[in-house]
Design a protein around this nucleic acid. Sequence first.
DNA 1: GGCCAGGTAACCCTGAACCT
DNA 2: AGGTTCAGGGTTACCTGGCC
Length: 417
Amino acid sequence: MRFHADLHMHSRYAYACSRHSDLVNLTRSARRKGVTLMGTGDFTHPAWLEQLRTSLEPAEPGLFRLRDEIDREASAPLPASVAEAPVRYLLSVEVSAVYRQGGRSRKIHHLVHLAGFDQVERFNRELAKVADLSVDGRPTVGLSSRDLLEITLACGPGACLVPAHAWTPWFGILGSKSGFDSVEECFGDLSEHIFALETGLSSDPAMNRRVSALDRYRLVSYSDAHSPPIVGRESTLFETDLDYFAVLEAMRTGKGLEGTVEFFPEHGKYHVDGHRACGVRLEPEETRRLGGRCPVCGRKLTVGVLSRVEDLADRPSDQPTDRRPRGAAGFVNLVPLPEVLGQILGVGPRSKKVAMEADRLVAALGAELVILRDLPGEVLAGQSPELAEAVVRMRRGQVGREPGFDGEFGVIRVAGD
DNA sequence: GGCCAGGTAACCCTGAACCT
DNA sequence: AGGTTCAGGGTTACCTGGCC
C-alpha cells in the first residue's frame, strides 16, 4: 500500500515541546494531515515509554496501533472524511550525541528506530549508563555517533540509525558548527550500516544530490514535530506493506521508497547564512567574502545549509537535468495548509479563521496532504477558488521566496501580496 | 468587546565565548 | 584559571496595542 510516514516526532516529555503532544492528539493530527505511519518519538523517556506500553498494542510486524478505546477518542472530533484512516506507530527516538572528535566538539542528532519493546529495553539499559533518561525525551549522551550506532545495531534485527536533519548548523552530521564533511568521518568502521539521511527543512533532495558522495544514501524527510499541528509538515512516501521490516528494506534499498514531501528549502530556518540578532541575511558567496564575520557586529555568522552544500558539492547547481541517481525517489515541495490559508485570509497560520477554514476543507475534501498534493485544481476550486489558485501555483514552484537564516524561518509566498 | 499580531520571558541544560 | 554570560532547541503564556 501507499502511505505517508513521519518518523521524527517528539512527545510532551522532550524539551521545548508542547504539552499537548500525547498519543491522542498526535494520532488525531496524523489523520488530519494524512500520515499513516508515525514515529513514537522519545521511547527512552520512562513516562512516555510507560504510556506507549499501555496505550499501544501490536499490529503488523514491528508496528503498533492505539488500543480501541483510545483510538476512538482520537477520532471523535474529526470529520468523517479522515476519522477512519488507519494510523500505525513505529518505535523511534532522537538522540543527541555530544562528544569530542578530531579536536572539535561534536553535537549530532540521530534518529533510532527499533522493531519492538524488547529491543527498546535493551537500548534504554545501555543509554541509562551514560545519561539520565528521565530528564528529556531527546536524551543527550556522552557517546560518539559511532558508539551510539554500535549500541543500536546490538539491539537486534531491524534496529537502525538515521542521522537527523543532516545539514543543520547546530546538530547536523554535515552541519557547519560541529558536523563532519562525510558520513564516513563520523561513523568510521561502522559507516556501512548507515543507509539513509534525513534532509531537514532547509534542504531538499535536489540540493543533496549535488554531492555525489551522498548518492549511496536514501533521502528521507520528516516533521521533527514539537507539537501536534506540525505533524507531517515533511514526510516520506512509501509503497510497501505496512510492516516495519518492509519499510526498513525500502529505506535500505530504495525499492518501495516513492519519494518525499518537502518544504521549499528556502522556508527552513537555516537555508542561507546570517546573524539573527543583527538582522543580517547573506548568500554563501557574501559570507565567504566577509570571512564568516557579521558585517554589523563582527561576530561569527551562522553558516547555513546552502553554504555547506556548496562546500561539499561536486556538481553544479544550475544543471537542468535530473540529478537523481538511478532509482532514487522523487519529491515535491509544499507549504503547509495553515500557512497557505493564512496568506489567503491575511492572518497568521494559528488564527481561528485559519483553523475554521482548514476544518471546513478537510471535512469537504479529505486530509491536508491530499488537498496540497493530490486533488485536481478544479476540485479545490469547488470549495475555494483562491485555494485552488495558490495550490496550483505552489505545485509548479511559482512561489515568492525569502530564505530563512540563523534560526529565522523563511517565507514562501503563495497568495496575497 | 472580541479578535488578532507581535513582542518577550520562561521552560532546562550545555558548551562556547567572553570577561576579570 | 576561573567565573559569567549568552545562545540554541520551539512552544506556551502573558502582555500591549491595533483594528473592526
